[in-house]
């Protein structure tokens, strides 16, 4: 029983990690409708920034969020403006995928060029301290990630529901043409959404970097899982992404313990494919059906 609870706790903590990385992606994917393969590399950039700031200035890693999130916001805006927006009118959306694949390749290798292949270690600043909760043991940093991702979900929901800008973003996500007719500057909204999505990753980086070694390829560990989470949660659904991340975290953890560590990917992708095929709108989204044929 204790083991079960420990696996459960580990799964939830892993879920929180996936959640905080995926929330930004669901914004970008859901609003701008772009499959951003460079999402993991945004995280990688964020983690290197956290590493540089903590290593050079001696700040606590969590404090770096005030600098890293805005910087990533700019990275996101620039990506949207310079790479995605010119392709928005392209005949098919395939092309954007390749642009983000190219961006991802370029960023990984740029990091390799600057930092080398070795891992970089952000000082943990006490976040690696284990906490005993009943029979289960987790890290302080993991609990902070869980709380932060929940806070991020709530904050973004409030922003999207209650503010003028948030409502404009939702309008664009639901119907681009109609929003345009209503006088919303769609390109500006897209830049904003991409920026906010990337800033979320910057926010995540401040919490992830102290717990995981940073390397040029760290993003590739996350990106496929993040897509799984986003699709599972329902396109553009922030709460759904959080729930989806928890589910994937638990599947990963339980499959790893009870089936075998080498097959956990099969379990995760298997569930992903089942959801895609059986309920392509995701588990938590009613409004968008991806298989819908509109004659």
């Amino acid at each position: 029983m204790d083991t079960f609870l420990q696996v459960l706790a580990s799964g939830l903590m892993l879920g929180a990690l996936f959640a905080i990385v995926s929330i930004g992606l669901t914004l970008i994917f859901g609003i701008v409708k772009v499959v951003n393969f460079a999402h993991g590399e945004f995280l990688m950039i964020g983690m290197y920034l956290v590493y540089l700031i903590t290593a050079k200035l001696g700040l606590h890693p969590l404090v770096t969020v005030v600098a890293v999130a805005p910087l990533l916001f700019l990275v996101g805006v620039a990506t949207q403006r310079l790479i995605i927006q010119p392709l928005m009118s392209a005949r098919d959306d395939h092309i954007q995928i390749f642009a983000t694949v190219g961006l991802s390749t370029a960023l990984i290798n740029l990091a390799l060029l600057i930092f080398g292949a070795d891992i970089a270690n952000t000082p943990p600043g006490g976040l690696r301290m284990p906490i005993q909760i009943g029979p289960a043991r987790v890290l302080l940093g993991q609990v902070i990630i869980l709380l932060a991702s929940a806070a991020l979900v709530i904050g973004l929901q409030l922003f999207l529901q209650r503010t003028q800008t948030g409502r404009a973003i939702r309008a664009v996500a639901q119907n681009r043409a109609a929003a345009q007719l209503m006088g919303i500057n769609v390109n500006r909204i897209y830049m904003l959404a991409f920026g906010i999505g990337a800033a979320c990753v910057g926010f995540a980086a401040a919490m992830v970097a102290p717990l995981y070694p940073t390397s040029p390829t760290i993003g590739t560990y996350f990106v496929l899982t993040a897509f799984v989470v986003v699709v599972l949660g329902g396109l553009g659904s922030i709460g759904g992404a959080f729930a989806g991340a928890m589910i994937i975290g638990l599947i990963d953890s339980f499959a790893g313990f009870y089936i075998g560590s080498d097959l956990r990917e099969v379990a995760v992708f298997g569930v992903f494919l089942l959801i895609l095929i059986l309920k392509p709108s995701g588990l938590f989204s009613e409004r968008l059906n991806l298989s819908h044929v509109s004659p």
Binding site: S104, T105, A106, L107, I108, N109, L110, A111, L112
Partner: peptide
């Protein structure tokens, strides 16, 4: 290290 990949991506 990485220059070739960077140029390729760009």
């Amino acid at each position: 290290l990485g220059l070739h990949g960077f140029v390729y991506g760009v």
